[in-house]
Amino acid sequence: MTIRIENLSVTFDGFHALKSVSIAVDKGESFGLVGESGSGKSTLLRAVAGLAPVSAGTIEVNGEALLGNRRSRAFRRAVQMVFQDPYASLHPRQTVDRQLLEPLAIHGIGDGERRILKALDEVGLGSSFRFRYPHQLSGGQRQRVAIARALIVEPEILLLDEPTSALDASVQAEVLNLLEEVRGRHGLTYVMVSHDLGVVTHMCGRLAVMKSGEVVETLAATDLAGGRMVSDYSRRLMVASKGFSREVAPV
């Protein structure tokens, strides 16, 4: 078991963003999180990363229990996150090169030159992108840089917060292929948030459905695709993902 979260609660000034959530993710697994907007999916990932005020419950990663928001150096290297919004997750005043160098500098990893070129190559951006600023990149290219930044320290776990929701369909396909390929090559564990059931069933083996800070159901992707779910909410999600229709549109 790589990640084990038990009865986790997160509270922002009296507002319960997560209410006693439990999930477990195996090593090498790709685990999906879907659910209502504002249900706490991002908060769950941020809690693992030590960016959210945990009020109760335990988080265990690689057998090590995490206390509060303190994280060890080893953890900071083993767990990386890719954020929802590629327009906001890169420093606007730093070149791609600087941003990729930063994690190496923090962790005292040498051989920067070679690693940066390799990371760029791995995400399908040539070295010609190395000295560009974020505003000179498209959304998809930015998200690749964010992925390269996460991969450069050779992590074991990637927390992916809607990595493709800001991208167009053709670029989304490229980024998803890239993520799958990287996972296959390095044996990574993914926890991936998405609101697109198509994407989640494509990428993940198992997934949890969340609503108002709670996990309503955990099931295999094949069960979701086959319509074998127990909760009403999951069923509603399935119906909704068929697209807009004037008849079912709520009045």
């Binding site: 960016l51 900071r76 996150m81 929802q84 906001a88 997750s89």
Partner: peptide
């Protein structure tokens, strides 16, 4: 509070 600051924080800075 922007994500890019959260990102460097996450890297262990």
């Amino acid at each position: 509070n922007s994500d890019y600051i959260a990102a460097v924080h996450l890297m262990g800075a």
